[in-house]
Amino acid sequence: MGNLTLIQCRFSRTRSWLLLVGWLFALSAGFSQTQEVPVYPSFDALQPVFSSGADTTYVINFWATWCKPCVKELPYFEEAYESYQGQPVRIILVSLDFPNQIESRLLPFIREKGLRSDVVVLTDPDANAWIPRIAEEWSGAIPATLVVNGTNRVFREGDFESLADLREFIRSCNN
């Protein structure tokens, strides 16, 4: 439970600025589809994204286009996105694609797959510093998923077998 305090909205001027840089980067990448893809150069800048709504359940999935099991389970997150419409559940797909592959690989991938869940990119290289802030028990292998709602949290290192598996996992956060 030590991680919970970390997942709280703490905007500072620097962080907002970094956030802006992220958005500008995504925009300048020429991405003009249904959603923008913010790029966060630091974990500090990303953290407020999944800690702002008090009654919201955040489903945060760490993935990359090159990660086979991640790509395999993406449809479950997309289906979950559809099925939780109108409910206070937000699905955020945090891409860990390499900085030099965002334009060449990630954006085309999002377009091709028509992803509708929110996608953000985290390029903070100092993983040893930010991994334990997501989950103390996470070794860093992806896929990995954190579900957090207020002080409740559940974390899984590894993939989901099915939509039912994912839904059950999301539900377990609020039990």
Binding site: P132, G140, A141
Partner: peptide
Amino acid sequence: FTRAVGCTIK
């Protein structure tokens, strides 16, 4: 002991 992002073992 340090952590890093990596690929799961298949």
